[in-house]
Write a protein that binds this DNA or RNA. Structure first.
Lengths: 212, 212, 212, 212
DNA sequence: CATGAATGAGGATTCATTCAT
DNA sequence: GATGAATGAATCCTCATTCAT
């Protein structure tokens, strides 16, 4: 479970090459169907090394996941540290944009996440899912709370449901950017940004505090 | 290519037993990781029979999917044929309730769908996804249009985005009812219904035409 | 081993259909690799019938072989009954032509024979091979003997070797007419006849009794 | 596609053991009916190794074939490099002897060749056949041409047909040495050599240039 | 520490044969 | 007598894992 330090000491380039190859396999095939054979060939390393570094397939998966989670956190930090003094809806729009940037740069990471979501017997599933969702959800929750404090959302807004809706939108929006056939007009990553204002319009009216 | 009629002629009980066992495997493991060995053991039939009935794994998957789609359609028919003369938001609430009933009765079918969504190299993925989504999405689209005609939603509602949001909520809501760890307060199927009014409140304000 | 009479009582058309389908399989794939599944599909009969008629795969093969042997005999009869009062070399040329006609009409039968030749563990191999070769070889042997009596071949001709050579030529010639890539200029069934005079020229000089 | 070097690096003894076991299977059963299970048991290696070495059954077959072809070439070299200053018929007799030596030492290789000849849907059939036949046929063709230049064969000899006849005799002669039931007096490898002079007698009269 | 050869369990699939209808 | 569903052994092949070099 605890990653061998051997892998850590590898040259950065090689580490990245291995992580990338593993991520590709897991993201495309899911955990069980992923083949270490294909991975090592892609990465150009010896098969034995995988087991030296990570113990077994599960350990490799955990490492890939942790590696990916770091990138997610980096991205989130960017948004969080944005000192933007704007209202929550502008903020949400920014987040969608950032999310889109993320799936554009790291489409495989998002696919990895969806596999985790949909496969009940994936090893470490619960552990990993709670870890990654904590990142995203806490962030949204905090956003909502602060907005409430600032009076940007209406008093009687059902918070739990609002949070759920935001997460649903976010997830589906990113999924559509990563996998085809989720709806005409949304299969194209390039034009997806055009929809963001529309979403904000609905959310603002549904959750906001503006007088008409 | 044309499905053998052998399977059709089986006694209903046996057919259902086989479909159920296959659905369990596919829903839990996804397509590639599903094991026909496990399935036939669960179903109590000979391994060779699977191939006599369905030709190959892909054929079996297609059959399971078709079988499941029928149940989805049955459910949708119930909602559609409901002659309810109510506004769209009451309707949406009904739909969420019905969806919850469905995932309660057929949790595996929904999991099957999520695998299809998240696995890019699933066989027949595009074909099957377009088929199943046509059912659901067309229904929601029609609902929105009629509501627009009746003036139940505001004139300037961005329709595409509204539709997307509804689908996202629907999907996520049902997913939460089927798989754990999507959020505290939502992991419990029994209490999920309590959230429906909250959702409707937000949607109505965001999309509706009511004067405050 | 003894063929069930059930098959004999079948309508001629059906019998022929079954034999033809079986011959195709055995000729193309050889005995072990032949599939009864494919055969019954081609023949459009029930799989169980094959076993009712012939007992098992081996019985079927024996029946196909017997059926084919009949056709060979028919063909040989044509040549034998030809009251041609010609010398042996004209006769041999006729035989090659007839053989070519035969492989043109029944290419599969010849392939069946080559499989039998080249597969050591084919069931009934020895029994069947001796049966079929008896037909051909005895005929050639008789031909040679009569020619010797008539003084058409030289006194000192080594008979065993001559017979062997004739068989070799015959077999190879027919094989080339049935399977490609045995030599440029011989892969084309249509032009093979042009080579016959050349062969006769060599044989006549090598075996004949003519004074230069 | 490119053959793994793993097999090449094996100890010679093991390589030979594997090749021998595989050759036995393929030679006895033909390609499709050959069983890798039986082979690995005979060779005493793990089943997985076969696929590590050769990729798949076809790759194994190609390797066995290449291995065998090398032995054929070695044998041919012996004959070719024989600086014998003799006429073509003495040469042909030598070749038959050498061929007999070869089938005595490597009977399976010749059987492999006959399967290739008689099985139309063997993988790589055309490719392999042209390769192996090039070796043998070119050699005979060259022999004939040189004999023509030296005036050892008659001017008006039909060359194509002569070549064909020589090949047919050669093939059939070797086949008889390897598989039983091709003719009494020829089924016995030990006495086959006795027939060679008889063949030469016929060929010399049929093709040669001697005045009686 | 890196390598890659060895292994056998398990994968999907095909098959000849049996037998109840 | 004809049918075709049921069966399980055997097919080729892939895989994660181990371990000697």
């Amino acid at each position: 479970m605890i990653p061998n330090t051997t892998f850590e000491r590898l040259p950065e380039e090689k580490k990245e090459r291995i992580m990338q190859a593993a991520l590709m396999e897991f993201a495309e095939k899911g955990y069980a169907a992923a083949s270490i054979n294909r991975m090592v060939e892609k990465a150009g390393i010896a098969k034995g090394s995988v087991f030296q570094y990570f113990g077994d397939k599960e350990g490799l998966f955990a490492a890939v996941f942790a590696h990916s989670l770091e990138k997610v956190k980096d991205e989130l930090r960017k948004v969080r540290d944005n000192p933007a003094r704007t209202d929550i809806f502008t903020r949400l729009a920014q987040i969608l944009h950032t999310g889109l940037d993320f799936t554009r740069t790291h489409p495989l990471i998002y696919r990895l996440y969806t596999h985790l979501l949909s496969t009940p017997d994936m090893p470490l599933r619960n552990f990993l899912l709670t870890r990654i969702r904590k990142e995203g959800k806490d962030f949204l929750a905090e956003l909502l709370e602060k907005a409430a404090d600032r009076g940007e959302i209406r008093r009687d807004l059902p918070m739990q449901e609002a949070l759920f809706l935001l997460e649903a939108l976010m997830d589906r929006f990113l999924l559509a950017s990563v996998l085809p056939y989720l709806g005409e007009g949304f299969s194209d990553k390039k034009t997806m940004e055009n929809h963001i204002p529309g979403f904000m319009d609905i959310l603002e009216k549904g959750m906001g505090n503006k007088r008409p």
